[in-house]
Structure formats: C-alpha cells, structure tokens
Design a protein around this nucleic acid. Structure first.
Lengths: 138, 138
DNA sequence: CTGAACGTAACAGAAATGATTACAGTTCCG
DNA sequence: CGGAACTGTAATCATTTCTGTTACGTTCAG
C-alpha cells in the first residue's frame, strides 16, 4: 500500500470543518479508522503549516485555524510534503552513454511538470467544497 | 524511494531511440545502472503495449516498434501502469460519521482529477522531444 | 492531585521495490 | 549438431517505507 498520509490529512481537516469544533485524536482516529498516534503525527505537520491549533491537557484537542474556504488541498499537500509524483533515477550515470548522462535532467523536468499539474489541480479545491459534498450526502 | 519503473522505462525507450538499433538487456541495464533482469521485466510491459519488439536467442535484443515521434510519455505511463498519484483510504468507514462515509467518494474524485492532470502533461511529451534533448546535450 | 488529553520515541509487522541467482528456452553460426 | 549468447521467468533476499502499537513523559482542567 502506498502513502495514505495525504488522504488521511484531508479526512482529518474535513472532519474538523464538519464538526466546527475541537476534536481529540481518538475521535479523529475513529473516523479515519486508524490509530490516534497516526493522527497526532499528521496533526504535527498540519499544525506546522498553520492549518490547525491544538490544546494539550484535559479536554484538549484540535481545531481549524482558518475558514474552510481559505484552505485548499494544495495547502494540505504542502503541509504533508508527499514524495514526488514521478520519481527520478538518482544513480550515477554511465559516463560514456549520452542518454544515461542526460536522463536525470530530462526526468527532472518531466517530474517537475507533473508536480505542477497536480498542484494546480489541488489548488482549485477548497475544504469548503468538500464540506459541502459531505453536507449534501448526509 | 518510490517506484522508479516509469523513469526506467522512459530511459530504456530513449536509449533505444537514440541507438536507433536493437540493444540487449545488458547494455540497457548498464545505461540505467541496474540489473538486466529488472530491464527485461520492464520490457515485458513495453512489449505488451506494442512499443517495442524483442528477439530471443543469440544476437537478440529489443528495438522500438514505432517512431519516437509517435510515442508519448503517456503511452509509456499506461504501459507501466503505475499506482495512482494519490492513494485513497479504502478502509471501512465509520457508519455513524458522515465525513467518514463520504470521504472515499470525495477522494476518488480528487484522485481522478490529479491522475488526469498528470496524464495530460505526459501526453504532450513525445520520445522525439526527449531524443532531441539528448542530442543537443551531447 | 488526578484524570484525560497530547507529544514523541521506539519498535514491530507488512508491503513494496529492486537486485540477484538460477535455469529453461531460443537462435545464430561455426 | 552443439556451443555461445541471448531472452523469459520463477524464486528468493535485502532494503526501505509505511502504518500500527506500546510506552511514557508533559500539560492542563477541575
């Protein structure tokens, strides 16, 4: 199975937007169907990105820092810092092979372009939109 | 590091285009800097997609089936069938949670959109373009 | 102070990836 | 024909990545 951190993070934020209140990692974990520690690890990244704020201690938990309309999936993507969409071969090229020597540069460009395309896509989706989908589906 | 099959495959096909002749898995492996068996596994997928043809036996090897201008990176991407750009959470949703119950549908759409964006990007790049970059860099 | 929550380190298990070995099948060519 | 030089493919191993889990210290409300 591949990296589900981004999906988990989107899920968490959508849940917080839907609840419009602070939630503890236990409840979030139940909604995502995973372990609270996994949630807390993700919350660390989301907190660093300024998307959420969390209270420690009794009655602690996490809440959104911004309005759902002000959070795009790109913000979440950047907070999580997933691996590149297209991996490139980082090995030592074969010196005598022109193709081998040029591939890293070529694939860097291809990879950057793919990354950009995904980012543009995610930039256009706000948490608000997802929230409305949840509300409509209810 | 993640799945490098796509990069490897692009490298292989670029090398074949550059050589404009049949190459054996040994030479291809040297250019990519990996093992011949890894190359042969990828060639299987590329062959199935009709991009290359290979000869067994002595003096065997693989050559392109189409002109570089007729092969796009999307063709290669489809031949390799990489995992989705954005993984979605396939677990059982928490029945009583509207967010949990809607997330799979929501993320499917997000994931499909990202996939589409990447595909459009790759569709616009032909092997011919990469080949020219190699030739220019020489 | 106690209970409930978070922060975080540490470790375990599973899955994915790539490298390797091994061996059978194919083809060329002397 | 028979060997050399290839490919095809299965099996296995090591490494890395991802996730889950346990454990324990810290924080804070009441």
């Amino acid at each position: 199975m591949v990296n589900q951190q981004f999906t988990f993070a989107v899920h968490i934020l959508t849940a917080l937007a839907f609840a419009n209140a602070t939630m503890d990692s236990q409840k979030l974990a139940a909604s995502v169907n995973t372990n609270p520690v996994v949630i807390r690890r993700l919350l660390l990244a989301l907190r660093r990105a300024g998307l959420v704020a969390t209270q420690t201690g009794k009655h602690g938990g996490t809440k959104l820092c911004k309005k759902p309309a002000e959070i795009s999936l790109l913000d979440i993507y950047d907070a999580i810092q997933p691996r590149p969409v297209i991996a490139i071969n980082e090995r030592k090229p074969l010196a005598k092979c022109p193709v081998s020597c040029t591939m890293r540069e070529i694939m860097s460009q291809v990879s950057a372009g793919a990354e950009k395309a995904v980012r543009e896509h995610l930039r256009a989706i706000t948490l608000q939109k997802l929230l409305r989908k949840v509300q409509r589906a209810r």
